[in-house]
Nucleic acid binder design. Structure first.
Length: 498
RNA sequence: GGCAGCGUAGCUCAGUUGGUUAGAGCGCAAGACUCAUAAGCUUGAGGUCACAGGUUCAAUUCCUGUCGCUGCUACCA
């Protein structure tokens, strides 16, 4: 009954340290993956690293080692982050994997009808051994700041992929929703961008300028350029072209990417697939960027937030919670430590954690931990499901919090603690109390279910506490308060002198 | 410059096909309560829905213009 589903994430360039954007990729994909698994589907979940290119080669040379040895040392940083954000990925691809390299070469040959040799012309810096864009050249007044030499106009031969041949098909696929781009405004932006057609892209470099990459078949002088190599990973990792199993999971249901790489995934990637006569992915989920205090994160400003720090200080669930609820899934979001801590203490600690605690406490106190019977609590979960299915994870969590709030309100309205007092005089109070508390437990179990995709640990904890019918002895509280970035209201007030 | 979008309570934002007193969360103030993580609940203050016109019996909601802001993209060869 369950379907085979496939979700992918962008593979980061391994040169550098993982950042919050990578974490967001993994998190969003993982939420979707867990949600689908919860609903009985089989999910393949791809992650990986992009390991070719000049920058890698240069770094390796600097360190006096060969590029592969260098990437062997580097890719683990990303794997660590994936694991740390709780991503239950099933497939890890490195673009230096033998199978990937062979598959990409196979792809190259299959794309032959759409590959032609052309001339690339651009601004070249001899010192960098690399080309620079017009924009960069302008910004520096035509002189390379690192080498104090003017850029030269140089042309070189390389291969091009005739992506333009697929312009109409791509446009149509996007317009008709065969390849959906979410959110809608990204789709419009992209359609506007290609209204005059998709431009052919250069897909190789002369070996003398790019040593570290996949060799072009039958042309020892040329090496493949990044995008063809990197984009192909989405299918090579599940076995394309030689292992038939890839057909059981492709086309991908969702491909998670950041807004900065939409053009490659909505332009070049579909062209490659069309050229290979392989189906297009069903959906591209384009997320935004995370700002800090409404300022772009950048190393030069020094406001970079390391996801590892957040997880270390507040735990995995808190990280996942904040970045899925308070960073809009489909748009830019804003992070500050203060916002984070407020959300943690108020929403996770007070609203949810305390709610679990108060219900567990009452059952323990009034009924020796035994949970009674009650009709299955069934809130209307359609808004939640609609939000999940449309990839608005933040909206889905809003819905969960509405039910958290209403359970708190329910408790205030029936006042179990007052019913408990009446038990000595009122013979029906015992049964009434039992039913009320059972109802509350039922609601909590449902909340636990809804949280499974978002906060695996908390969800498990809630289930473990209540599902056996007897409150578990384990009394560790959920989301204890943390005051690292905001004042602790519990602290004794310091006399305010003037 | 082009395209898209936004400007609603102190802050972050919802407002479905135009229709009685414009909503939520946070923050703030007050209150009642005590099962609970100094938690939870209730109530309240606070908005000429950017501005100016227009269409309409009726506009936050449609149209035009102005101002301000954001995103994508280009050009200045």
């Amino acid at each position: 009954m369950g379907k085979n589903l496939y979700i992918t994430t962008a593979i980061p360039y391994v040169n550098g340290t993982p950042h919050i954007g990578n974490a967001l990729d993994y998190l969003l994909a993982d939420i979707w993956s867990r949600y689908q698994k919860q609903n009985g589907h089989q999910v393949r979940f791809q992650v990986g690293t992009d390991e070719h290119g000049n920058k890698i080669a240069a770094k390796a040379a600097e360190a006096g080692i060969d590029p592969k040895t260098y990437t062997d040392q580097m890719y683990g940083n990303f794997q660590t982050l994936m694991t740390k954000v709780g991503a239950e990925y099933t497939d890890f691809v490195r673009t230096t994997d033998d199978h990937h390299v062979a598959a990409v070469q196979w792809i190259w040959q299959k794309l032959q009808p759409y590959i032609y040799k052309g001339t690339y012309e651009g601004w070249y810096c001899v010192g960098h051994e690399a080309f620079f864009t017009d924009k960069e050249v302008d910004a520096t007044g035509g002189v390379c700041p690192d080498h104090q030499k003017p850029y030269e106009r140089v042309s070189e031969e390389n291969y091009y992929l005739k992506t333009s041949a697929f312009s109409d098909k791509i446009r149509e696929a996007i317009e008709k929703g065969r390849m959906q781009i979410v959110p809608e405004f990204r789709k419009k932006e992209f359609l506007e961008l290609i209204k005059d057609g998709v431009k052919d892209v250069s897909i190789s470099r002369p070996r003398k300028n790019l040593s570290w990459g996949v060799p072009v078949p039958n042309d020892p002088d040329q090496v493949m350029y990044v995008w063809l190599d990197a984009l192909a990973n989405y299918i090579t990792v599940i076995g394309y072209p030689d292992r038939e199993e890839w057909k059981e999971f492709w086309p991908a249901d969702v491909q998670v990417i950041g807004k900065d790489i939409l053009r490659f995934h909505a332009g070049i990637w579909p062209a490659m697939l069309l050229g290979l006569e392989v189906s297009l992915p069903k959906k591209l989920l384009v997320h935004g960027h995370v700002n800090v205090g409404n300022v772009k994160m950048s190393k030069s400003i020094g406001n970079v937030v390391d996801p590892n720090d957040v997880i270390d200080q507040y735990g995995l669930d808190a990280f996942r919670y904040f970045f899925s609820r308070h960073i809009p899934t489909l748009d830019d979001g804003d992070f500050t430590w203060e916002k984070f801590e407020n959300a943690y203490n108020n929403e996770l600690g007070n609203d949810l954690g305390n709610l679990v605690q108060r219900v567990a406490s009452m059952v323990t106190r009034y009924q020796a931990g035994v949970i009674g019977d009650a009709p299955q609590a069934e809130h209307d979960m359609k808004p939640y499901r609609d939000a999940m299915n449309s990839l608005n994870f933040n909206v889905a969590l809003d819905e969960v919090w509405t039910t958290v709030r209403s359970l708190n309100q329910y408790l205030e309205s029936v006042k179990p603690w007052e019913i408990a007092k009446k038990r000595e005089t009122d013979t029906e109070a015992e049964a009434h109390l039992s039913e009320v508390l059972a109802q509350a437990v039922g609601a909590l179990l449902q909340i636990g279910d809804l949280l499974v995709p978002f906060m695996p640990n908390a969800a498990r904890k809630i289930q473990a506490t209540f599902e056996t019918g007897v409150i578990a002895a384990d009394t560790a509280i959920l989301f204890p308060k943390v005051y690292l970035h905001t004042p602790d209201p519990r602290a004794p007030k310091i006399a305010e002198s003037k």
